[in-house]
Nucleic acid binder design. Structure first.
Lengths: 355, 355
DNA sequence: TATTAGCACTCAGGGAAGCGGAGTGCTAAC
DNA sequence: GTTAGCACTCCGCTTCCCTGAGTGCTAATA
């Protein structure tokens, strides 16, 4: 059965007050807030029913009510009004996102930091796992007889390079040959295919060249491995301590450790990266450490159909409306920054270069 | 006046007990521990003098004594015995350091994480600020008519690349010309010189080429900026909460925030990166947030005469002997990993490539 | 002079008790 | 269906007391 309009208003008032104050909300307070023109007694009756149906909870007899995860869920799905970002907020976000066009890792890292500052919650950011990335091409740059740089480009447009130093000598023309070999033999292969192919080639190639091929292909393997590992950037972990629910160490500690080690890909595996802003409340989280937390995420575009995820973690008591709005805005900005190629003769970039 | 032998033994006993237990140490306990064959009353007298001379402190009348920063300093300088790493410890470190030859950033990041796990304290790691790095060379790789990759190599052997997409078209030969222009005009310049040079060139070059030059030089600027910014990697911040002195939130919070924002180069500017293992105790720290903390650091070799720093932060009560030993070992390992070039036909690397 | 034993004193920390207040549930009236 | 009134509950805070570890001091001893 649907909740009556009044009960919804009460639920909403409870949630919005609780989100602000972190204190259980009493019937009197709701009466004042919700503008319902009914007495606190009436509201008491309704609140009793909301408890019964699982939308609210009482920490103990005769404290006020606090929202249950189910209550938050209803609020998020139906009751919450879209939060309108203030001009200051959009400005602050824009400033924070006015990142130089750095390596992708850096951009994402800084975006996470910006979000942490903005929301006062710990933030995480990650790039989606590109399962089937392949090497698109190799470039070998001659440095001197004893060293060269290998540049590897994947079909997800990631470019990585590495300086190799050797004991033997190598001429530019030899290097060029090597490049041709690599580009004909080892492009278009996924991580899983790369090593077998290397073994296959080992049988035909001459020993000297093979050692070099192996070096560069190993590097390519590392690049693909790195991409499939999707490091989770976290920022602002200490922000957790600002919030009253984490005043008690026992509550804060597990979550902080969890965030500290979030690299282990736990986070992304468990939350479903659905398009747009995305809210996971308390027990909806699969990960044990997040059972009492809320997670708000937004996905952004990495180009080539790939998605990244940026979000914050906090207590279930969060201003979901505001945070989703902020995240959505950041994600949009990120998509643009990443998608936007460096255009020549673009004034903005000219300026950026000199800062 | 020098401390008597017995007083030193007492000081040492107090420190080593306090480091273990985090509880003030009483005269009786010292009598048991320090094997001095004198009664607790004698020790009480000596301890009273140690307090008077600033080596010990009393939290209040009639609690035991705890070491003061001055006491720790004496301990670190004279009393502490070299900690011998156990075989397990060296093994664990070796495993943790058995990093693939990744980008430098990654290596350092992972080393920091390893140290955090190992010591149970938050760790930081950074590369020393290379003040006078210049661009050594540019390479431009043709991708297609609308995009190319710029590879920039600095004289500190850092190599960075970036993919540029443009709206106008560009032929390989044009790209080659552009590369020559860049290599003749913009190599050997420091960050400070790069922008003026760009302005100078602007007057002579034709507009079309200039836009491209500017793009790539801006990128080079960013690379040098990035290098001069020396990001501080932190890991294991939540480890702080494991230690009793940070059970009270008020103590933990400022330090955690400090570590969270350590990127701001605060840490490295304030602590003097002297060679070898390095201990800074409590008020010796210049940064306010570290006034009650101990910092243990070790520097490692980045090659080319440059140094990096890796260390941990904790309460003043730390097992300095053990931690310096661990850090020194890690730093040594790091130097080797970084210094060691990828040698062809080296069995070890062959194996690594296939894992 | 250095060391020891003995003893009164101090103080942090923890538990018990008491209280005030916010908020409830229930009943009876509207 | 709504409201007013009232007794009741229970958390959180403060206060008080007690205990025990460890001290400082004094007087005796080597």
């Amino acid at each position: 059965m649907e909740l009556s309009e009044r009960k919804k208003k009460i639920l909403r008032a409870v949630i919005e007050s609780y989100v602000q104050t972190a204190e259980p909300v009493g019937s009197k307070a709701v009466a004042d807030l919700a503008q319902l023109n009914v007495s606190s007694a009436t509201i008491r009756n309704d609140m009793a029913e909301l408890v019964e149906r699982g939308y609210l909870e009482q920490p103990h007899t005769s404290a006020g009510r606090i929202p249950s995860p189910k209550g938050y869920r209803l609020y998020v799905n139906e009751l919450m009004e879209d939060y309108k970002l203030s001009i200051q907020e959009t400005q602050r976000i824009n400033e924070a996102l006015d990142l130089k066009m750095r390596a992708l890792d850096r951009v994402i890292d800084e975006a996470g930091q910006a979000v942490a500052r903005l929301t006062q919650y710990p933030a995480f950011a990650l790039t989606a796992p590109p399962e089937r990335v392949t090497i698109r091409r190799f470039d070998l740059l001659f440095v001197d007889q004893n060293s060269f740089i290998a540049v590897v480009m994947t079909d997800s447009n990631t470019v990585r390079n590495k300086l190799f130093r050797m004991e033997g000598e190598l001429s530019p023309s030899q290097l060029q040959m090597l490049g041709t070999l690599l580009n004909t033999g080892f492009t278009g292969l996924t991580l899983a295919q790369l090593t077998p192919e290397l073994a296959r080639v080992a049988r035909h190639a001459e020993t000297g060249a093979y050692a070099l091929i192996e070096l560069v292909v190993s590097f390519a393997t590392e690049v693909l491995e790195e991409l499939s590992k999707l490091p989770v950037h976290t920022a602002g972990i200490a922000n957790l301590l600002e919030h009253p629910e984490f005043q008690s160490l026992e509550k804060a500690q597990p979550l902080m450790s969890f965030l500290d080690h979030a690299d282990s890909a736990l986070l992304p595996a468990k939350v479903s990266p659905v398009d747009g802003s995305n809210i996971v409340i308390g027990p909806e989280n699969v990960s044990e450490a997040l059972k009492d937390s809320g997670v708000v995420m937004a996905s952004y575009d990495l180009g080539g159909g790939m998605k990244g995820l940026i979000g914050v973690v906090g207590p279930t008591r969060m201003d979901y409306a505001k945070i989703s709005a902020q995240l959505a805005y950041v994600a949009k900005g990120l998509s643009q920054i990443i998608g936007q190629a460096a255009l020549p003769a673009d004034d903005k970039h000219t300026k950026e270069g000199t800062t």
